[in-house]
Design a protein around this nucleic acid. Sequence first.
DNA 1: GTCTATAGCCGGATAGAC
DNA 2: GTCTATCCGGCTATAGAC
Lengths: 232, 232
Amino acid sequence: MNYQQFCNKHKPKQSELFAAFYDLFAKTIEIKNRKIAIEKLQIIIKATFKLSATQSFASMTLRQLADETHLSMGCLYAYIKNKQQLSLYIHQFLNFYAEKVLNNSPNTLNDIIKTHIYLSEILQPWFFFCFMESKNLSKDMRKFAIKSELLMENKLVTIIANGQKMGIYNALLAPETIAAHIKPLLHDWYLKRWKYRQRKISIDEFCLSTLTFISRGLTSPDSLTEHNKYDE
Amino acid sequence: MNYQQFCNKHKPKQSELFAAFYDLFAKTIEIKNRKIAIEKLQIIIKATFKLSATQSFASMTLRQLADETHLSMGCLYAYIKNKQQLSLYIHQFLNFYAEKVLNNSPNTLNDIIKTHIYLSEILQPWFFFCFMESKNLSKDMRKFAIKSELLMENKLVTIIANGQKMGIYNALLAPETIAAHIKPLLHDWYLKRWKYRQRKISIDEFCLSTLTFISRGLTSPDSLTEHNKYDE
DNA sequence: GTCTATAGCCGGATAGAC
DNA sequence: GTCTATCCGGCTATAGAC
């Protein structure tokens, strides 16, 4: 699987993405004209990402959001119940969407890692927002919001444990430990997206180097060479 | 070097830390009684960390801060010029302090990595705050604030490049790429501190597994084994 | 569906008493 | 140094016209 193949299978058109968004929350959205709602929700959420990324969601005002979307305050409130709900819906939708993709993903280590990176590329602003703004959620909601993250982590652990049992991976580190190290490597792609863009590193290059880095940590069966041993 | 040794050399008493803080900004702080100022600044900044961590700095109100510190609004304003400056000073102080320690740090790869982890342990709330709240800074200030991060990154790159030249490390990945992968591994310690605490993973265990993970990526000279090759 | 106008509150910041 | 009292601007949210 490469990025192009993943896109063919999973990359939604922007309109499809927000159609799914509307359908998920349609019951609680005042506007009943589906086509208009989808269009406006896309505008509102993209503006939310833009403003949140530069100043944080908490300090973004709905006046700014109204300006940015060229909607009035009143109109905004036809699409969202209040400011907090806007944040909540974004979290919930990403969770919903990520879980759908992860549940359909293949089960080799490389493929899961690639699936995660590719997904976070396609939905980069969503991932970034959810990572940075998880504070906005209540405790209950926070638990819900990281369901798909746990799903991902469990998949990693299972595969690594299996690989170790079969002798394919060395067992120097516990599966949970390795999984814990892998995750921040993947997060970096969407958290520091601007850095990779600036350095002109493509997603394929990033995947290659990440997988190389991880594979080497997993597969070398020999003990550490002398000068790099953890020297107390 | 282990954590205990590092602490003996670098770990400041809390009062020393905030004494350094006061001295760095004394010119711009109204309160001239050094002892009182140091004490209150410690209270104010710790409260800021607490409130920011649960709700973000932007949404923390100075009234909340006054409650948490048991100071009045007026009194608060004797220590800080305004809300934004509070955030700025925290960023500037961490940068000042980190640079001091990093410049005195030894120059082996393991020691630099350990220095960074140990430092981020001692100043965990500072590191967490600066990572999460860098948005609050103006563009100029942001550049300034990451000076010490760049210092750290450059040190990594230099050492890795050297090691590759000397044949100690494999040259599968560029030094910059490896450094880019190492950094999020280290950030995880202070960003997800609660997770490691919950799992009862000590800083020494974290260092060991991180260094193991990194070393293996660097030192195995053989090419990737078949089943883990980047199978496109 | 979208707008304007406005209610009502809360935030940052300051003045001035003690 | 620390407090109370207060200004004023800007915020979320809603009512009601179009």
